[in-house]
Every structure is written in C-alpha cells, then in structure tokens.
Design a binder for these strands. Structure first.
Lengths: 225, 225
DNA sequence: CCGATGGCATTTGTATACAATATCCATGTC
DNA sequence: GACATGGATATTGTATACAAATGCCATCGG
C-alpha cells in the first residue's frame, strides 16, 4: 500500500464508494493525479484496476467515468455473487479443517457481539462478516474463484446496503452464519451451498426493497414540490 | 488494436500461448519492450492485463513471470467455466430470440462444414465454436458474466487441447452444439444448462486424458534413456 | 436559424529520464 | 567451508515531456 499507484487506487476507490465522485462523473487523469498527490502514471494504473473492478467505465474514445449501476446491474451482480459464493461454500464444507472451523466461530462471535450492543456496531458487523466470507473463500482453495469473487464482494451497493440494515436483519444474517457453520461442522457441501445461496439472495432482496422505498420517497417528494 | 499497449498485449500473449515464452520464464519489461518495438509504458499496461487474465504471475517483489498452470489449476478453471457457461446457457435459453437462434444455426453449420473436410479444418472449427459461445453469452445479456468468462475462455490449455481433438471428438462436440440449439429453440433453460455443463466438462476430461497420456509418454521416454 | 467546418483547448497515449528497490556476486569473517 | 555483508548491477516505480487524438466552440455558409 505504500506505492503511489496503490494509494491512488484506494483514494479514487474511496471517493467513488463514498459518493464524493458521483456516478457518471468524468475522471480526468490530471485532476485525479493532483487530488492524490501523485503523477498521472500511477493514476492510469489505478484506473485500469478500477475498470477491471467495474467501478469505472470507459467511453468509446477512452474517457473514463464513474460507472453507473442500474438496478439491473445490481441484480446481475448479486445473482453471480450468489452462485460463486455458494460454490465456495460447498468446496469449503468439503475441505473444512478443525482449525478453520475454529476461526469461523471466532469471526461469528465477534459479529454476534457487534450486533448485541445497545447501538449496533455496524463497522464491527461488516468486519466480522468480511472475515467470515474470507475464511470460507480461503478454505475453498480456488485461486480463480477468489479472483472472480474479488470483483463482486465490495461493490458500492453492498457497502451502502449493510449500513441500513435493521437490527432484525443483522440478527437474521448472524443466524444464517451460524447455520452455515453447522453445515461446515458436518462437512455437508450441499447444505452449505443452499444456505449460502439463500444468504446472498436475501441480502439482495433487502437491498432491492430499500431501493424501492427510496425511489417511492423520491417520487413523493417530487410530487410535493 | 492499433495502440502500442494493445500490440504489446497481443504479442506477449501470443508468445505465451505458443510456448515461445515457457512457463516460469521471467518477463523483464525492457526485454519485452524491445521485442514488441514499443517502450516500457505500454508493456507495463499489457502485463497488468495479462496478470488479470492469470497468464502471468508476480513474485512478492513485483517481478513478472509466465504463469505455471498445474493440472489442478486447469481443473479449477474448467470447473468454474462449466458453471458460468451453464448459467449463460440457461439465461440465453430464457431470453432467446429467433434472430439469435438463426445466427447460432449459421455458426453451427460453419462448424459442421469445417469438421467434414477430408483433413479437418481445426481453425474453422475453433472459429465456429468461438462464435457459437459468443452468441450465447451475448443473448445471456449479463455484462458481468461475460467479463468473468472472458478470463476463462481462451486459456493456453483450451487452445492447445482443441488442436489435438480427434475427428470423433470434433463430431461429438458438434452434436452437443446441435442439442444445445434444440434446447434454445424450445427456450428450455434447465435443458440448456445441463447440456452446457456436460459439454464443458467433457472437454475438460478430453484434456485431462490427453495430459495423462503425454505424461506417460514422457515417463516411458525417460525410462528408455 | 440550423448545420457544417476548422482550429484551439483538453485529454489521453507513449517515450524517456531518473529514483527506489531488489538481485547477485565477490569478499571477508568465523 | 559456510554464511553474512556490502556494493555493483539489473529491474521496477514514478515523474515528466511531448505526440496524437478527441472534444468544444466559434465562425461561416446555406
């Protein structure tokens, strides 16, 4: 992370995820370079990586812009993520070790602690959640699967969704993690696969519902103006 | 393709796929730049892309080398490809149009012609095959699915395998394409998914068998020396 | 008033120089 | 003789200058 290109990557990425750079915004290399305090060379590398992540797009004439995520794109991404994470869960169940199982339980405990605070610790929840899924991916032992999922796990949408989870949703998510752990403990690949599919798709519908609610609110507000 | 970085990408890629640059070979940026007749800047871009394709790897100190594909890596890649192409086939069947169906039939006819020559036209077969799978991916209508499959379809292994297909294997492959077309004509997603899974996994086992045979031949030769 | 055209401004692409870092080999010490 | 150390050498990382292309806008002709 000390390399200039890594700093540029993180900086631009954060600006996109935080919404500081809104969807559709043109990304001039020179302007980004100045923002990041580096030259254009590392910025160009960072943009290529962000393009691979599909966080930025390119016009037919090589102008880069912040990618716009339609609701269909989000559905598409969640569908693929469900398929790939489910596959990872199955492989992980088939290859599970006692040591990894212990680490998964630790992550789940941290997650449980986070959501039982008087004011739910969302950052703690996200970190425990990330760790949980990371261990599964590690145990699954497929470098390619990990690479493919890498471009799907930390999308703008996913991050923003979790922040709006209700306590009930957080609790439900944790319950699913517990059930997945049970499937891992029994080395039951089919079970793990099924729960993981459900786990991701439920997260998708939580997002879609929230999105629809947001749209309705926007429409009402427009009507009032 | 006229850009220097594109030329560098193609050139290096071809050298890897042809075996001119053997697995494990160090890829000095300066040396590659000279080979491609460009400067280091576009070579660096090309290497980043090839790294995303997993055709080149990187040491912990950022030295690049031609990726070494163990038999397990190949199995891993085929397994993922089977899953993703099967998903694409299902989506394509559900969204199939008459126009696309006609194009698929044209591709299949070309493929059929290629394998019925006295001396099978392998290049023609590969082109028809590529077109067939490309149309399916297009009809599937998922940019992400296309992006993920992009890194899996034209791997060194896949290309080298097809060149050693027997006429019987070519004929079988074509028969599977015909069956897939039938599934598409009936808009039967489950059927299409199943055939595609089988289609890719059969190709995998054809490769694995050939690989084993090659290993055995090598061992025998060693024993004879 | 609308659209085409030309040229200026902006942006991206490439080459190259230089800085930082890693590798390798020779030398010296135990 | 094995291993650590240091510096020469090679390689990668970054900045910058310049070339090529793209986009924008004003001007001109209809």
């Amino acid at each position: 992370m000390s390399r200039a290109s890594d700093r540029a990557y993180s900086a631009i990425r954060n600006m996109i995820l935080s919404g500081e750079l809104p969807a559709g915004a043109q990304l001039g290399e020179e302007a980004l370079a100045e923002m990041c305090g580096v030259s254009r060379t590392p910025v160009r590398e960072a943009l290529r990586r962000l393009e691979a992540d599909m966080l930025v797009g390119r016009t037919d004439t090589q102008r880069t812009f912040v990618a716009d995520w339609s609701i269909d794109d989000v559905a598409d991404a969640f569908e693929l993520r469900a398929m790939l994470e489910a596959r990872a869960a199955r492989r992980a169940a088939e290859r599970m070790t006692d040591a990894a199982l212990a680490r998964i339980r630790v992550a789940n405990r941290a997650l449980s602690t986070a959501i039982q605070q008087p004011m739910p610790d969302v950052a703690g929840f996200l970190e425990g959640n990330r760790e949980f899924h990371a261990i599964i991916l590690e145990v699954a032992g497929s470098r390619r699967l990990a690479a493919l999922l890498g471009t799907l796990i930390e999308q703008p949408v996913v991050l923003r969704t979790a922040r709006h989870y209700s306590r009930e949703e957080l609790r439900r998510s944790h319950a699913e993690h517990e059930e997945l752990t049970a499937a891992f403990a029994r080395r039951d690949g089919a079970w793990a696969e099924a729960i993981m599919t459900s786990h991701i798709l439920r997260a998708y519908h939580a997002y879609a519902d929230a999105h629809r609610a947001r749209l309705d609110a926007g429409t009402q507000q427009e009507a009032a103006e």
